[in-house]
Nucleic acid binder design. Sequence first.
DNA 1: CATTAAAGTGAGTAATTGATTACTATCTTT
DNA 2: AAAGATAGTAATCAATTACTCACTTTAATG
Lengths: 202, 202
Amino acid sequence: MNIIVKHLPADERREVTIAAVIELAAEQNPTDITTAAIATRMGLTQGALFRHFPNKAAILQAVMAWVSTKLMAKLNTVTQGVTSPLAALEAMFLAHIEFVVKHPGVPRLLFGELQRAEKTASKDIVQEMIKRYSEQLQRLIEEGKAINELDPDLDTEGAAILFIGTIQGLVMQSLLAGNVDHIREHAPRVFTIYRRGIRRSQ
Amino acid sequence: MNIIVKHLPADERREVTIAAVIELAAEQNPTDITTAAIATRMGLTQGALFRHFPNKAAILQAVMAWVSTKLMAKLNTVTQGVTSPLAALEAMFLAHIEFVVKHPGVPRLLFGELQRAEKTASKDIVQEMIKRYSEQLQRLIEEGKAINELDPDLDTEGAAILFIGTIQGLVMQSLLAGNVDHIREHAPRVFTIYRRGIRRSQ
DNA sequence: CATTAAAGTGAGTAATTGATTACTATCTTT
DNA sequence: AAAGATAGTAATCAATTACTCACTTTAATG
């Protein structure tokens, strides 16, 4: 898959490092991702990593920034031009699921970061991303209520929490089954129930 | 809070150890829970732990078994004598939330175990518990459909996944906020939306 | 009260991990 | 082609971790 090349320019090497970490996270517990493991995956020696990152935390931080950028961009493109808020929510949901299926290590990394007790830079990035995510959801939900597509009595914040929780639940299910692809099948079914919970009664 | 007593009988010492781990998990990343930290929390030296457990994995295993027993027992008592499946589901939901608020470290431990790549004994216990949990949910949901309390077209498996995911989402939200008590407020609101999603249309 | 088995101590070990560094290989620029 | 800059190597370090063990303390029992 990954052609191993040496003497990459620094910025490319950093990109490859991020990819390696996300790859490893799909296979093992994030805490087990040692700098040695990352280096080996790239076909480098461990010490070489520290030519491009000041320390391990900086590597994680770069990964989180990458995830945040990529995911939010994806969600933006996928809702672009969609007029129905409900349709936009569904598009976001499915796009998020696709992202997770494509990068199964990502939710593990995110959750691993959130678990931390200390306030790390990586944790900050994750928190900021979820905050923006939640705000976008609540905007869409409010819109949906305004045009009478969603239940006017709907608890906006609760609906946003449930939206994210639904994805979390699917991810957890995949961790249980050890099979990420199951998510693709379950996602639309679960979203159907969610939609019924927020939609205006016919 | 915890009176530190020395020279406890082995079975009591094991109980105290389990409590210490759950306490620590509420404060820090499960991976940061070292045997030294556990011992210190109990007012013991590290070596003493290994009088009562053959290794660290056995400690985790005991904790998981404790959680599984306590939580499932709680859910059983709380649904006992409740005839309406929908009411039983709500009781389960709220009881589960209460359990999490009382033992905030537990979901972190569970998720930490599920993250593991290898098949550990602790992971097995967690998977077995969630399997039984899901089965009970699906039984209740089927019942609810049978007596026309729930939507007859409802996807039973999806609804069970969403139920667990909803709790997961609330837990994640609390990790984000760093405030477990928020859950208590959000839980009923979120369950309201879930209920609307599975209930028979009026 | 003396005995003894259980519980705890504290000093150790081996393995692992993130990080450092002197040195080498490769690329780029003039 | 020479020279400087960049990237990678390999050995090593200090710190941390789970686990061991010879010894001491405690509490229950006859």
